[in-house]
């Protein structure tokens, strides 16, 4: 079922499949920093094809592949490649297809990974397509919640910041809505969660929308913080006013539940000051490092070592 499967959108996953990935990621955890002793992907080649720079995501995939013993082919600079000569994505994919056993693709156009999966015989993993999907990010977020809190069902998750444009929030909230959770969307008026996403989520689980983080902090098990981008505001003063409201302070967290965790897809700017980093609630660096076991799990499942 997993062998050669494309990993394009979190929407393609059932609850059982998500749990299967989290479970496998948990088994990979001991090998995430030292490498898998059996090198299960020793005879495999993983190609990373990044049409836009995202060094961390690329390195995370490459590290995960190498930890499993696979070799990695990385697209060099775009200027030097056929892409710069105007080759279409579908043509590029048809060529790279014969060079590797899996393709990890990052592309600025939404839906690029779906397109690539139709042209490639080898499995395609979406490493972010514009403002679209980034399923391994969603899975590592879910892994972090599951690992830190013991389960996903029964938890209350609050998203704060830019909920309008933040794709991590859209994908994660949709995926979480398959579970028995409560979601809180905390944002300024200008950056509210898009209506169609809220409508879809509300069919399955309770949702609360508010501007006031103070009001809901005591109800949360997870506080998922996102960056509010300057460029979303025509007026810099307006930006400062809005961004200032959602800065996470120790005094705020001290009012939260005992096991509250704070997550962030990173990079952060001012929304989480450094003084939070050493508090027990801060899990965002752990979250980032969970990218390795989750990506190892995915690679191992689709390239079929078992």
């Amino acid at each position: 079922m997993w062998l050669n499967r494309d990993i394009v959108s979190i929407g393609d996953f059932s609850v059982e499949e998500i749990m299967e990935v989290l479970d496998r990621a948990n088994k990979m955890l001991p090998y995430a920093s030292s490498g898998h002793p059996k090198k299960p992907l020793a005879d495999k080649i993983v190609a990373t094809l990044f049409y836009e720079p995202s060094t961390r995501t690329r390195l995370s995939f490459e590290s995960a592949a190498m930890r499993l013993g696979a070799r990695v082919l990385s697209l060099g600079s775009l200027e030097a490649s056929s892409v710069a000569k105007g080759e279409t994505l579908s043509d590029t994919i048809r060529i790279i297809n014969s060079y590797s056993d899996a393709i990890v693709l990052r592309h600025p156009s939404e839906g690029a990974a779906r397109l690539a999966s139709e042209y490639a015989d080898v499995p395609v993993i979406n490493a972010g397509d514009g403002a679209g999907q980034h399923p391994t990010q969603t899975l590592l977020d879910m892994f972090t919640i599951w690992k830190e809190l013991g389960q996903i069902n029964g938890k209350s998750i609050g998203f704060v910041g830019d909920l309008k444009y933040g794709r991590t929030v859209h994908s994660l909230s949709k995926a979480l809505s398959l579970f028995d959770v409560s979601l809180y969307f905390i944002s300024p008026e200008e950056l509210k969660i898009p209506k169609h996403i809220r409508r879809d989520i509300e069919k399955r689980i309770p949702v609360k929308e508010t501007k006031n983080l103070d009001e809901v902090i005591e109800s949360l098990d997870v506080l998922y913080v996102t960056r509010i981008q300057k460029e979303r505001f025509p007026d810099i003063e307006e930006y400062k006013k809005v961004a200032g409201i959602y800065v996470i302070r120790p005094s705020l967290l001290s009012r939260g539940r005992k096991n509250l965790i704070v997550m962030h897809p990173l990079p952060r700017v001012d929304e989480i000051p450094a003084e939070i980093d050493n508090l027990p609630q801060a899990k965002y660096f752990k979250q980032a490092s969970n990218g390795i076991p989750v990506r190892m799990a995915i690679l191992d499942m689709i390239l079929g070592s078992e």
């Binding site: 156009s109 939404e110 839906g111």
Partner: peptide
Amino acid sequence: KCSNARCVSNMESAI
């Protein structure tokens, strides 16, 4: 056609 200008289906003529 897709109403999303950034959708790959608006970029690649083959699809």
